[in-house]
């Protein structure tokens, strides 16, 4: 089977006050279907940048980044938005739910862009919430739940459109170890059979990385396996 993500010579350079910083320095990498990849490395090493390029919310200066056969950096803004909607689920460190919407409505958000009727949407949202163990919290607002529960709602939102790829940037960074374990357990479940999604997670926590199937280290924009 061909890898879901193929990256070749990916480079992105920032200039700051005359000093150039290579956030990504000729990175080459393959990620297989169903992998749970942990990206580690010191602060400023380019982890988030790599994740953003793969997920199609940032553009590299040069190099190849194919996801599911699609040359992501070559898509237009508007094509990218559609592509992300159907192919990528996002989980961020924190504050990534809409505070005025209930858990159910937050999870429903990506579905509003698809041509689905209400019953179908409800079915998908219920399934996703079930999967993260929050079926009984559907009508709670984010502030009425714990940080761990909020993050699980975010995971439900990430998987509700059934994307092949889930990207998570320090999803446990703001959580206590118990909540973190719950979140990591869910991500591990999503990546293993029978679900088999590909999960790419940035983390600083070696214990969190331990939930993954492979760990990569970035330093100054370069990969060190």
């Amino acid at each position: 089977m061909t890898p879901i993500v193929t990256i070749r010579d990916l480079t992105k350079v920032y200039e700051r006050g005359g000093v150039t910083v290579a956030a990504l320095d000729h990175v080459s990498l393959d990620i297989e279907h169903g992998e749970f990849l942990a990206l580690m490395g010191p602060s400023g090493s380019g982890k988030s940048t790599l994740l953003h390029v793969i997920a199609g919310i940032d553009r590299p200066d040069s190099g190849v980044c194919n996801v599911g056969g699609v040359p992501v950096p070559e898509l237009s803004e508007s094509e990218l938005a559609d592509w992300r909607n159907q192919n990528v689920g996002f989980v961020f460190q924190s504050f990534n739910l809409i505070p005025v919407l209930s858990a159910f409505e937050n999870v429903e958000l990506p579905l509003l862009l698809m041509n689905l009727n209400k019953a179908k949407r409800k079915q998908l949202v219920d399934t996703a919430l079930e999967l993260v163990g929050l079926a009984d919290r559907a009508h709670h607002l984010p502030k009425q739940m714990s940080g761990g529960q909020d993050q699980r709602v975010a995971i439900a939102r990430a998987i509700v459109t059934d994307p092949k790829l889930i990207v998570a940037d320090e999803p446990t960074g703001n959580l206590d170890s118990h909540s973190a374990d719950e979140v990591l357990q869910i991500l591990a479940t999503l990546s293993s059979k029978p679900i088999g999604k590909t999960v790419i997670m940035v983390t600083h926590d070696p214990r969190a990385a331990g939930f993954g199937t492979r760990t990569l280290y970035l330093e100054k924009g370069r990969l060190k396996e």
């Binding site: 919310i57 938005a81 992300r84 990506p110």
Partner: peptide, 13 residues
């Protein structure tokens, strides 16, 4: 930030 998240999950300009 919320608008950024909406954009990330596929909302168009």
């Amino acid at each position: 930030r919320e608008l950024g998240i909406l954009k990330a999950i596929g909302y168009q300009r």
